[in-house]
Nucleic acid binder design. Sequence first.
DNA 1: GAGTTTGAAACT
DNA 2: CAGTTTCAAACTC
Length: 449
Amino acid sequence: MSGNPPSIVLLPSSSSTSSNPSIQTITAHPIVRPPIILHQQTLQPSSSSSIPFKNVIVKPYRDSIQQALTTTNVDVKPIILQQSDNVEPHQPNKRIALDSSDFNSSNITFSAVPKSEVMTVLQQTQPLNTVSLATMVPQSSSNSASFSTLRLVTPSTFINPSEMSTIQTSGQQILLQQRGNLVITQPLVTLQVQQDPNSAQKENNSNPNLFSTEQSTTNTRTTNADYLPIQYQRKPCNCTKSMCLKLYCDCFANGLNCQNCACLNCHNDTRHEEERAKAIAATLERNPNAFKSKMYKFANTTIPQPDRPLKGCNCKKSSCHKRYCECYESRVPCTNLCKCIGCKNTEQSVHPLNVGFYRSGQPKTTSQTPLDQIPRTGPPTETTIPNNVFNMEVTEALATCLLVTGQQCEMNQMSDLESKQAILKEFQRCMYQIVQSALGRPPTSSLFD
DNA sequence: GAGTTTGAAACT
DNA sequence: CAGTTTCAAACTC
């Protein structure tokens, strides 16, 4: 019915200096998951202080992580990330912005390492707000004197070092244990939050075999809900008959274990890992595209490009204007893959600024806002930008930029005023680039250098 | 909050 | 592959 939304790339604000807290590059993919930032950092064994982040680049690993995952066969052990042949050359102090889908096709492979080794790394390098994923071992044997770490930085989640935990694999899954609800979702990589052992509230999928951090320090943590933007908070499912092992279950469909859900007879947790793994395998056998974003999938390439619709909707009565419609829910216009009847979810009807739409925590009303009254047809001009520019993904990328900027300010111990200015400047830069991209102009950041 | 509607997923 | 059933969420009252 209509074309794909544009792909927006937020490009560097300037040639970066270490004092510039700006993110360098963020690619916004039309998926509906919050981005993950991998921090690749070189560490000398003697190093004890964390190195300030310097760059954020987009490095979508697209080819082999799924393969790596399927070959991972270690239980209840943390894992090491190793650079495979296809991974870009090891670059110290580089941050890599990934979205969750990138994990499914990364060129990173995994292997087991002693827990103590990982914990040493964590202790050495763990600043606030970051989660070390694992030790990264350079492939070059000549470089054995140094090693590096990969860190996951969830832009919307602040994690105390005391919440730090390790990674274990179980079957084809990798579980990064933290506490609370974490929102990273991908088919085979599930990030979870480990329950505070002191907390009285029990998590329904706690696993006694999991590693705990065992270095619990002062716990100043508040609930995870305090950290997450509402759209990233997991919506508890309410399944009663599917044991949460079918795609009916939103948690399962998103590759997540149930957590604080209201489901009955739930098997979508680490206690039923075997069963869950079988269900995943069965689901994938039925539908290889299961667990992927309903509407989009990434092209099999290392070059970011607009995604292609994976499937269309089949709506008959909702005019594709209710959340029954997966296109509408995914905030994308219906395409020629759709078999919908009486579709009103056209490219013209999807308002670019209507970004407050997300599965959980959003108002259920479909009434229009004043912005909806603005006509949005015809070619883009200075005052009318193309539809779908401000989709959820762009918004997430934008939010990530701002969050990371804020984190940088924090790490640089900047004053409140300076921080605000830096964040505002970053916001201005991002908005400018978004509009430039929307207008089909080559990205430039000269305005803000 | 209960009941209805809806469309995807599962099943036959 | 098409038709039917099941399911859970969206929606309405």
